[in-house]
Amino acid sequence: MRTAVVIGTGLVGTSAALALASRGVRVHLVDHDPESARTAAALGAGTDEPAEGPVDLAIVAVPPAHTAAVLATAMRDGVARGYLDVASVKGGPRRELEAMGADLAPYIGSHPMAGKERSGPLAATADLFEGRPWVLTPTPGSDTEVLNLALELIALCRAVPVVMDADAHDRAVALVSHTPQLISSMVAARLEDADETAVRLCGQGIRDVTRIAASDPRMWVEILSANPGPVADVLAGVAADLDETVAALRGLQSADEDKRRAGTEGIQDVLRRGNAGRVRVPGKHGAGPAAYEVVAVLISDRPGELATIFADAGRSGINIEDVRIEHATGQQAGLVQLMVEPSSAPALAAALRERGWSIRQ
């Protein structure tokens, strides 16, 4: 691939353009808002000047509601040899293209499973897709050359290709992406009118659950509008679990011993099933979550503290598998949770204590 055009210079489009440009591909940037394309160009994502002729690959990075129309226009104008979109739903745009009578041979649907709470070109990074799944949804009629271009794009972005059926993809993202977004927003919405004394008690758990609730509502309305059925199906299952959990909690309030016992069993069941589902979430290197030991270190909010603790941990010769930071409410301090193999935890804790760090159990 020597040339590409990115149509839509938001977070995903600009990030793909940055990755391609950094690896020597000449990228042309197009957006309905010329200022957005100019911003992406100023970041080094390519040029907002039009291409002189057909490019190798056109990457359409616009909201799902507009994906098919933009693709059809680009294909009609012959802007590229191959066409690919990065919309978060796949079945709808493909069916719209078919209804328009478009030739689907030079087109492949795709969806990089990467994003941020922030949107727009200024949020883009060339490494956004590194190590992340990038779904491809080719059809039996997809041109082999276009499939190769799509695979080259994914390789240049250092993502991991995953081939799926378009409708199977939409059901999958309803479960692992779209429903979690709604549930996160619902939990965060409980905080809007909560008493300030309750909000001040927020810890890492509520921060984890509500992190993605900071996402752009307009963007998510567009995504959910393109995949409402599968999301509603998943939410219906969650709603059934909620009803059963509410009934179990009411049972725990009862003076009737049998109802209390049934309530306990109901709560245990939902927590057990949660444990079983969590184990299936891919962890490091794609494996299931490992049972790491946490070494919690008290740090102050001063420049260089994190760099120093990582350097001291590195001197111990122990690999840090993961890290989290829990901030202390209202204080200029917090806990860095260093996650290591269980057998390494005592040695790391001892090494950090020797260097003056305060270890918390």
Rank of each mutant, 00 (worst) to 15 (best):
S225E: 13
E222P: 02
R324Y: 06
E130Q: 11
L43Y: 07
A214S: 14
G101V: 14
S344M: 09
D301Q: 11
T245G: 08
G53P: 10
P138E: 00
M100Q: 14
A213L: 09
A69L: 07
L18H: 05
G115R: 01
A74Q: 08
L335P: 10
A188W: 00
A194P: 09
Q181S: 05
E244M: 13
S177L: 09
P346C: 04
G251H: 06
V340K: 06
N319D: 09
A74R: 03
A80S: 03
A99W: 08
D258W: 00
P180F: 01
I206T: 13
P289W: 00
V55G: 05
L242Q: 07
S177W: 12
T139I: 07
E265D: 12
I7D: 01
M113V: 15
G266F: 03
K90S: 05
D241F: 01
D233N: 08
L156H: 06
G283L: 11
V89K: 04
L151V: 03
G115W: 00
E354R: 13
R207P: 05
V297K: 02
T39C: 04
T210Q: 03
D170K: 07
D241H: 12
L306V: 12
A45R: 06
L335Q: 13
D301P: 06
A296H: 07
P106A: 01
Q337R: 15
A37H: 06
P121W: 02
V187Y: 09
G317F: 00
P54I: 10
S300L: 10
R76N: 07
M75P: 09
L136H: 05
G78T: 10
G53C: 05
T245Y: 08
I325C: 00
A105E: 13
V60F: 00
A123N: 08
E192Q: 11
S225P: 04
V340F: 06
G92S: 11
G274V: 04
N148W: 10
L348M: 08
I183E: 02
A80V: 08
L338Y: 00
G78Y: 12
D127E: 13
H169N: 10
P140N: 10
V281F: 14
E52M: 06
I7P: 05
A126P: 04
A58N: 05
L122Q: 12
A236M: 04
A255S: 15
D208A: 08
H111C: 07
E305K: 10
H111F: 07
V323W: 02
V176D: 09
V209M: 06
V336D: 09
H285N: 14
